[in-house]
Nucleic acid binder design. Structure first.
Length: 294
DNA sequence: AAGCCGTGGGT
DNA sequence: TACCCAAGGCT
């Protein structure tokens, strides 16, 4: 595997084939990049697009969002999932507005200090918004490296090693590095997919160690699979959030618990357990004996 | 630090 | 259909 040739081929492919995601357009602010990264956490980017467009129109700066009620952020999050991200994004907006003069920080360590920003998002913002040279490693990148470099069918558990691997492949030039980070993610999302990779369309198939080895079934151990969603507290929490998003009026406990149970519960305590956890998370607040978004 | 946290698309 | 998986992060 010639890393130099492969990375150049990958970048060239990206420049010609990258999907026209709206936050990739020229002139997108660092805030816009940050919002897109929050929304894309554990969420396929195609689903993010309409939410991002609406969000940026409504809250074009961190201070604009910070001035809104956090519950309005949760409401605008709609059905994107993991609504805590909306709360965290609002919190990050307040931190940026109050502590950083309404300017999204470009420094990875500063970004890591913001609510809801971890190792991936911090580097993604630094690389894509500011073209700083950092390895950006997401689930797509991990899979591409596992296959192309390590000859494995899939990535193993996330590890510090991932950053080292990506750093070793990263072009030295800042702009090329930023493109390469995006290109590795794009390849994983569009071509080198988890389930049915399209190797016949892959720009680096000729350097791929996994392909060269004849696609061995050698996937390392990975994270335990997600618990079943059906019957889970997550599903029941989702029902309550859906009700609260649907109205600006306070919702009674009875109505919330009824909505929680609609469609079935795993046990009798589940509706109350789900509601209590939402209150603990700050996604629901008690207000004059009733419930509302924060 | 292992488990938890929504929702929907692809196979 | 049921299952896997998705531009992760927090506790």
């Amino acid at each position: 595997m010639d890393a130099q040739q492969a990375s150049e081929a990958l970048n060239a492919w990206y420049l010609r084939n990258a999907r026209p995601l709206p936050w990739r357009a020229d002139g997108t602010t660092a805030w816009g990049v940050l919002v897109s990264e929050f929304m894309a956490q554990q969420t396929q980017v195609d689903r993010v697009i309409p939410h991002w467009l609406e969000w940026m129109e409504r809250w074009p700066t961190p201070s604009a969002l910070a001035a809104a009620e956090p519950g309005e952020a949760v409401r605008a999050w709609k059905r994107l999932g993991y609504p805590r991200r909306a709360l965290w994004l609002h919190r990050a907006a307040m931190e940026i507005a109050e502590q950083y003069g309404d300017e999204v920080p470009s420094d990875v360590d500063t970004l890591l200090g913001l609510t809801g920003i971890g190792p991936y998002t911090a580097r993604a913002v630094a690389a894509f918004a500011f073209h700083e040279r950092h390895p950006v490693v997401d689930t797509n990148t991990r899979r591409v490296i596992a296959r192309a470099v390590h000859g494995l069918a899939a990535a193993g558990m996330p590890a510090a090693r991932d950053l080292v691997d990506m750093e070793a492949l990263l072009p030295s030039d800042r702009d090329s590095a930023a493109v390469f980070n995006a290109a590795a993610m794009e390849l994983g999302a569009v071509i080198c997919t988890a389930r049915a990779p399209r190797c016949d369309e892959c720009p680096i198939s000729r350097w791929c160690e996994w392909r060269g080895a004849g696609y061995p079934d050698n996937a390392p151990a990975k994270k335990p699979k997600q618990a079943a969603f059906q019957g889970s507290d997550r599903q029941v929490r989702g029902r309550i959030m859906q009700l609260l998003r649907s109205t600006h009026d306070p919702v009674s406990h009875d109505d919330a618990l009824t909505a929680a149970a609609h469609g079935g519960v795993a046990d009798e305590l589940q509706p109350k357990r789900a509601l209590d956890s939402l209150v603990t998370d700050g996604l629901v607040v008690e207000y004059e004996g009733a419930l509302k978004l924060p």
